[in-house]
């Protein structure tokens, strides 16, 4: 890991922290209020706020996890150099696609 990856991982963590807290509070609210799936989707569909909120979440998680997994792979597998970099980018893209699918399902 070099200074750029280090900073990207720290910054994505800092972005995720308030998002995670809000996400958990929202779950508590939705559950305690007894909202069902239809009622939740009514609130999220077409909402720019929730689109941006969870979009940012997905982007940060993809960056953060890809760098973390790259570090683990460096230490626990024989992978080095380009293999490591491409592997991490692919893993990040996979998270991005899966996350984008989930966000689009509740927002669009």
């Amino acid at each position: 890991m070099d200074v750029r990856l280090y900073l990207a991982q720290r910054i994505s963590a800092a972005v995720m922290l308030p998002l995670v807290i809000l996400h958990i509070l929202i779950i508590l609210y939705a559950v305690s209020d007894g909202l069902n799936a239809v009622e939740i989707l009514e609130r999220t569909r077409g909402s720019l706020f929730w689109g941006v909120f969870y979009g940012l979440f997905v982007v940060s998680a993809a960056i953060h996890a890809a760098i973390g997994v790259r570090a683990i792979a460096r230490e626990w597998t024989p992978a080095t150099g380009r293999t490591l970099d491409y592997g991490a980018v692919l893993f990040g893209l996979l998270l991005l696609v899966l996350g984008a699918r989930a966000v689009s399902a509740v927002v669009l």
Partner: peptide, 9 residues
């Protein structure tokens, strides 16, 4: 010390 293998590991 900021490069690959440096302090951030």
């Amino acid at each position: 010390i900021s490069a690959n293998g440096g302090c951030h590991n």
